[in-house]
Simulated scan of single mutants.
Amino acid sequence: MDSVPSCEDGFTGLEAAIVLIAFVVVAAGFSYVVLGAGFFTTQKSQATVHTSVGQSSSTLEIVGNVYGTGSGTGAVGDTITYVNFSMGLAPGGTPIDFSKVVMVYSNASTLETLTPHDMTTTTINQPSQGGWAITEIQNPPNGDASTASPLLQPNEQFTISCEPANHIVENDLFSIEVRPSVGAAFSISRTAPAAINAVNVLY
């Protein structure tokens, strides 16, 4: 009995289709992985850029003059006890939590981190020696400075008073560096006058 001739054309087409489908599935999966990695890298790059901009630019500015006050009468040997200045946010600046701000006082012979006044209370006090405090709040968002928080917000101003451990003498060049938790530090450099009075505008 003669055997029926075999034909493998149908099997060859089916195998080719399976191989093609396998290649398409693998290529699609690989493309998905590559695109996902690309999107992740792009997002990380954007986050890095935004963080770098936030860290490199200071959002603080001095409002008005810097004053040095004490019990001076213009006599030789008088010293400045407190350095007072007002701070606000620069245009477009984001709010800054002053409960997390670090202030560092320095001159030619001293470097000290000033101790913040207790900010869990709304009582406004002058700082203790070697410390700093918010002594006045202007334009608080809720209109009541007595209940305002240490979060400096747009249009708001904090008056800051600093009392270095060693009081400032005549002709002393000093700096106070305001270091927020986010953003660049803001440095205030001034020189005490040759004759120190009770109130002195510092330049």
Rank of each mutant, 00 (worst) to 15 (best):
V102E: 01
S45R: 13
S149D: 02
E8I: 11
I196D: 01
V104P: 09
V4W: 10
A145Q: 11
E61L: 03
P91T: 10
P180N: 09
G70A: 07
N155V: 00
P140Q: 02
I168R: 07
N65G: 00
S52I: 03
L151C: 04
I80Y: 05
G77D: 13
N65T: 07
A16I: 10
A37Q: 13
G74K: 09
G64C: 04
R179C: 01
L151H: 05
N200A: 06
K100T: 09
N155M: 02
I21F: 12
A185V: 08
V76C: 05
T121K: 05
S45G: 13
V25W: 01
N155W: 01
E156C: 07
V26M: 06
S161P: 04
G38K: 10
H117Q: 06
V201Y: 04
Q129L: 08
Y32M: 12
S52T: 13
V63K: 04
T94P: 06
P180W: 12
P95F: 05
Y203E: 08
F23D: 09
V63M: 02
S187E: 15
P180K: 10
A133V: 06
N155E: 03
G143I: 03
G74D: 08
S181Q: 09
S3L: 15
A185P: 10
F11S: 12
Q43A: 15
V169M: 04
E177F: 00
T159S: 10
T120P: 03
F158W: 10
I96V: 15
L152D: 02
L89W: 02
I124M: 15
T79V: 14
N200D: 00
A22K: 10
A108C: 00
V178I: 15
T73A: 08
V63H: 03
I137M: 14
G38A: 07
F98P: 04
E112W: 09
E163F: 04
A90S: 11
L60E: 09
P193C: 08
T147N: 01
G68W: 04
I18C: 01
K100H: 01
A184C: 07
M1R: 11
A75M: 05
V34I: 15
L114T: 06
D118N: 07
V102S: 05
T113P: 10
M103L: 15
A198I: 00
S57T: 13
T121V: 12
N142C: 00
G131M: 14
V102C: 02
S31N: 14
E170C: 04
S189L: 13
L151Y: 10
S45W: 15
S189T: 15
P91Q: 08
V26K: 12
A198D: 03
E61N: 03
P154K: 04
V104H: 02
S3Q: 14
